[in-house]
Design a protein around this nucleic acid. Structure first.
Length: 496
RNA sequence: GGUGCCAUCGCCAAGUGGUAAGGCAACGGUCUGCAAAACCGUCAUUCCCCAGUUCAAAUCUGGGUGGCACCUCCA
């Protein structure tokens, strides 16, 4: 396997990864709280770490990827009551939808996807340990973590307990020893889902599930913990306090990965600004893979500005349309390669040396803090070489040319797979893309085909005046004609 | 108030000490009945500003300016 470096949020530096177990990576990612349909922000984060996972696999590591589902918490209960649903049934429904949505962006199913409600026993066990060793205290059926008993608190977010106290909003909960203490276990209110515990009926607090799930599925100490930047405080800080409070210094995550956020015209996404877009909308507008390609064209740690404008009540995802255009270029090249190579890959043997660079270049880029944009650049170089070979075979041995193109097709797919793109059949992707655009631009396909027939006849008679007239007519409709030796194809000109 | 992040070509975007990847757009060319696609070529002596460290800085340090995030639920 290829060694790699990663930026660790705790050390605040890029460093070489050293596995706990040779050849293996144990990785935990904070998953969704399932109380509403997944939106583009969820997708962005899921894609970022799915790319890390795929990269590691591509580099030859054996990855155990754990992503939890928080299926019981305040927000779920609130939403369920508002909509008159059973909280657990509702969260199960959204959890299933989440996975269906993420699949559209080529996000792989986690190796393990633990749910809080199936880990209540593990949660209780860790809370009991924290009480036993003096890090937590129970009050009237609630259990709180005593932050002052954990001096390293604040290390990840770069703050001290005192600084945090100064900035904290006043919480009117006199039962807590300190305002900064947080709930590990919450006593059930009437009508809430609850489980039996040594402190009475109740449910886990917000942060404890991650501590319970990591120790259960990856052990007290594991390699990588990942999540959105917003989770650094308080979520991850609290996880560290809980887990190290229970299992001792030096346990828990060995490396921390945090991804940057998606911004909209410099603004954070929020419901009040009307810029929350659900995965459905994205997939319908540009297809799931366009978002994937957009994501991997940026480094996962960078904040990314997302260009979307609501025009006549309908969102136009300009950034994603550009990504889709770029993606269609790769698929077009792949399709050309497939058509050229067919079943005859010319077997084993030498290929042009330029064609051998893609995989090593991609590995080098991914091994340096998962630099996916650099991989995309390498893919562009390979695509260019392929197109050149397809256009012109002069001076190259026929078998070498064929083998080289077969190799480029294979490697483009392999490298694309390492970042979660180019996973579809080119013909399928291109057909669906055209259908999408036809629908969006309300193109009358029958009329286009009719004009095409008319133009074919005109060209056969060498009536180029008429042929060009038809080209212009179709162009006015937004249809671009592509004359090839095999006939005339058409596509939607989607650049505005 | 505290903490952290960001500023690279018209646009998007890599690059954490060794002399500015890549994409889009633009312009010239090859090809084409015309066009598109594809390919070839051109396109940042310079990285928000000012000082400093260094043989060497977009990269490090100090000071500005501008933007963002977290400290409350948030991907």
């Amino acid at each position: 396997m290829t060694p790699f470096r990663l930026y660790d949020s705790m050390r605040r530096a890029k460093c070489a990864f050293e596995p706990l177990v040779p050849g293996k990576v144990g990785m935990y990612v904070c998953g969704p709280t399932t109380y509403a349909p997944a939106h583009i922000g969820h997708a962005y984060s899921a894609i970022a770490f799915d790319t890390v996972r795929r990269s590691l696999t591509f580099l030859g590591w054996d990855v155990t990827y754990v992503r939890n589902v928080t299926d019981i918490d305040d927000k779920i209960i609130k939403r369920a009551h508002e909509t008159n649903q059973d909280p657990l049934a509702m969260s199960a429904h959204f959890a299933a939808e989440y996975n269906r949505d993420m699949a559209r962006f080529n996000v792989m199913t986690p190796s393990i996807e633990p749910k809080v409600t199936t880990h209540i026993r593990e949660v209780i066990a860790i809370v009991e340990r924290l009480i036993a060793n003096g890090h937590a205290y129970a009050v009237d059926g609630d259990v709180y973590y005593e932050v002052r008993k954990f001096p390293p608190y604040g290390k990840l977010s770069g703050q001290t307990i005192d600084e945090l106290e100064d900035g904290a909003r006043v919480e009117v909960d006199t039962r807590k020893k300190d305002p900064i203490d947080f709930a590990l276990w919450k006593r059930a209110k009437p009508g809430e889902p609850s489980w039996d515990s040594p402190w009475g009926k109740g449910r886990p607090g917000w942060h404890i599930e991650c501590s319970a799930m990591t120790v259960t599925h990856l052990g007290a100490t594991f390699d990588i913990h990942a999540g959105g930047k917003d989770l650094i405080f308080p979520h991850h800080e609290n996880e560290i306090a809980q887990s190290q409070g229970a299992d001792g210094e030096g346990t828990f995550a060995r490396y921390w990965l945090h991804n940057g956020f998606l911004n909209f015209a410099g603004e954070k996404m929020s419901k009040s600004l009307g810029n929350v877009f659900n995965c459905d909308q994205i997939a319908e507008a540009v297809g799931g893979e366009a978002l994937r390609f957009f994501c991997v064209s940026h480094h996962y740690r960078s904040p990314v500005d997302f260009d979307v404008q609501v025009i006549d009540g309908a969102p136009r995802f300009f950034s994603l349309e550009a990504a889709d255009r770029s993606l269609s270029g790769f698929y077009t090249t792949l399709q050309r390669i497939d058509q050229f190579v067919g079943d005859n890959t010319a077997g084993e043997g030498a290929v042009l040396p330029e064609a051998e660079k893609l995989v090593p270049d991609a590995k080098q880029a991914l091994a340096e803090d998962f630099n996916a944009p650099e991989v995309v650049a390498a893919m562009h170089a390979a695509g260019k070489l392929a197109n050149k070979l397809l256009d012109e075979g002069k001076g190259i041995d026929k078998q070498v040319r064929r083998r080289t193109l077969a190799r480029l097709g294979k490697d483009l797919r392999a490298v694309g797979g390492a970042i979660g793109v180019l996973t579809q059949d080119p013909a399928t992707y291109l057909r669906e893309r055209r259908e999408r655009l036809v629908k969006a631009k309300q193109i009358d396909v029958a009329a286009v085909e009719h004009k095409l027939g008319e133009r074919k006849a005109a060209r056969a008679e060498k009536n180029f005046t008429r042929a060009d007239e038809i080209r212009r007519e179709l162009a006015a409709m937004g249809v671009e004609l592509l004359d090839t030796p095999a006939g005339t194809d058409w596509r939607i000109a989607d650049a505005d």
